[in-house]
Design a protein around this nucleic acid. Structure first.
Lengths: 382, 382
DNA sequence: TTGTACGCGTTATCAA
DNA sequence: TTGATAACGCGTACAA
């Protein structure tokens, strides 16, 4: 016991002498921290006992366990993750694949997602590695190296494409994969999504209740999952109200969501050119709504008097535009948590193979940008 | 050669039989991809030759190299990163430590930083792992486990505190560490920063040239590095112009940058209470400026007629506020690249030990929120 | 309950 | 230029 109270060096433990006794084939001395063998020596037990004491504290005598953990603490021992990983054939690193360009303007979904996911993962003892899926070959190779090289234990994918390179495809991995925000459950990937369609439908319904009958829809990239869902939701609401598809004008569709500001600016120009002006605008991202509003206000229109506006994302900044913007807030934190839960379930119970879809509902935040339609205008158009 | 043209299974290579011949102590069959031994067998060479061919292609006969890489490709072989890492005592994972709460409102610095860093790292063959430094013990432990457990090879820190837990402190690591955005070069950490001080000084100078002599400064958390620098810059400009410290009123200081919107709202209230109104406002984040502007506009002040406004961060959304906001854009991408360059230099040439400081200049984007001071008011106050 | 011995998949040394 | 072999640090089946 006395020796345990002593310092690392003072205890006569020569950590370094493991490099002396076999003076051949010594790799670069990078890590060089105390080893399990050092802990064992200091505690006066075998290495395997140390291993057990640290991993299965129950399967070792309480007294020796205490001795060992004291020794470990004294030495500042940290187990080598790669050695453990190699031995058990697992790692505790989760990879999240992000779309190439992260620049989402006002929206904070990416950092929020990372935050939420990382927090959940930490609680379960996992770490988060990020990978960017640019559309070049190198980045796909990197991702596949990570997946097939045993570095990562599971994947959260936040992008539509599964990376492929030569023979290798992420789809062929034995690794658990969960799709986030994008519903890929039909490709048998468990997915965590929000109810884009229903949220837009509800927002449209509210606009209709406010007397609006002519809409401008500012679209995301044509064919994109989110855009299809959101536009579909708007159309559903129109149909329910007995309004034909003629009552909505589409703008946008040419740019990715990353170029939302530009899309909004162009939509404002489209709006200016319309002979029959809509009285309500549904933008599929806050960026679009913000730049659109900025431009149409400059052109002389008043929001919400002339034009109501609602958008998607729930960016905090929407509260401070003039007027404050109504927006559909995505439950980013919860989605991240759900994705992690799904993933960990698959990791720890490998037999689960059925595709799952978890829907975490979005929430409309009503602000001043939504108001009753100008009576005159709508009567004119009906 | 014929066999190389065959498929993996068809070539008679029984990958699995390595589990048969020694039927004891078989770890969980997680990875189970082709091994270097499989490649060697298919190519008809020794394992060590495969290793060389893949790592040092120069030191092996071109003909065998081709044979080996063909076999590797055919099998879809990916080297096991943990085995390699264990052997060479290095990993190729870089950890970035982010502050606990990432929610920065309109600013996009975090995703931009991650993007820039990840891109640079990928080019050098490294991967990025993120760690959140919440102020709880667990997150510090996680970070230290990563650092001392050999998982990571270097650290980029984007937070003021170095994690500590018991005996262990990140400061004691042999790992290369680079500080980003925060100047920690005096604590002998190489740092990549921007010229906060000078950028604010320049912006203040421009305001003075526009005739402004009374300022409201909306502060970040009191004592924070960025705030000290930025406020210092403002004061320097005042002094140069022969204006005393009396000419600037401070607001804020109570909240972190994450609560920038709130800080701005409170600053608007402070502004309303002031008997002598400043004619120019310097906000230390875009969030503060945005919410401040929203509130004072609602109170009836006009920007920029009554009040000029400039802020810090360069959020894209500033272009679309009404009026468009002048803001100091931080060169986030370049800073990330510089940090990576610094880090990799330290990794690959371990002897470098002098602290370095790289300053990447910020750039003022002038927009309509900055205009000439109302002549009357300033004459009144001079 | 503890110790011995072996192997995880790779790289590096040495000899051929 | 290539092949046999010994580590890297840890976990685990088995014997004690």
């Amino acid at each position: 016991m006395a020796s345990i109270a002593l310092g690392f060096e003072a205890a006569g433990i020569q950590t370094k002498d493991r490099n002396v006794k076999k003076n051949k084939d010594v790799p670069a001395e990078e890590h060089s921290g105390p080893l399990m063998a050092d802990v064992a020596r200091l505690a006066g037990v075998a290495i395997s006992t140390v291993s057990r004491a640290l991993a299965n504290p129950g399967r070792v005598n309480e007294k020796t366990r205490a001795k060992i953990s004291a020794a470990a603490k004294q030495l500042g021992y940290t187990p080598n993750a790669m050695a453990r990983g190699l031995r058990v054939g697992k790692s505790n690193i989760i990879m999240i694949i992000l779309p190439g360009s992260l620049h989402y303007g006002a929206s904070q979904i990416i950092p929020q997602i990372l935050q939420g996911i990382n927090r959940s993962l930490s609680q379960h003892g996992y770490h988060l590695m990020i990978a960017n899926l640019d559309r070049d070959e190198t980045s796909e190779q990197h991702i596949l190296d990570l997946a097939f090289g045993g570095t990562v234990r599971g994947v959260i994918i936040f992008s539509s494409q599964l990376p492929v390179d030569g023979n290798r495809s992420l789809a062929d991995t034995a690794l658990p994969i969960v799709s986030l925000l994008l519903d890929m459950s039909e490709s048998s990937l468990p997915s965590v999504v929000t109810n884009d369609r229903q949220a837009v439908r509800q927002a449209t319904q509210e606009l209709i209740e406010l007397g609006h009958t002519r809409f401008l829809y500012i679209a995301g990239p044509t064919g994109n999952y989110h855009d299809v869902e959101r536009y579909g939701g708007a159309l559903e609401a129109l149909r329910e109200a007995g309004l034909s598809e003629q009552h909505v004008v589409r703008s946008g569709g040419a740019h990715s969501y990353q170029l939302g500001f530009r899309t909004g600016v162009e939509a404002a120009d489209d709006f200016a050119r319309l002979e029959v002006k809509p009285t309500a605008v549904i933008a599929t991202s806050d960026d679009m709504a913000i730049s659109f509003m900025s431009r149409v206000q400059r052109m002389g229109w008043n929001i919400p008097t002339d034009l109501s506006l609602v958008s998607f994302d729930g960016s905090p900044v929407c509260e401070f535009s003039t007027p404050p913007l109504s927006t559909i807030e995505q439950p980013v934190e919860e989605m991240g948590q759900a994705a992690v839960a799904l993933l960990i379930e698959r990791i720890e119970q490998a037999h689960i193979r059925t595709a799952t879809r978890i829907v975490v509902p979005s929430r409309l935040i009503r602000r001043e940008s939504m108001a009753a339609a100008k009576p005159g205008l709508n009567i004119l158009r009906s």
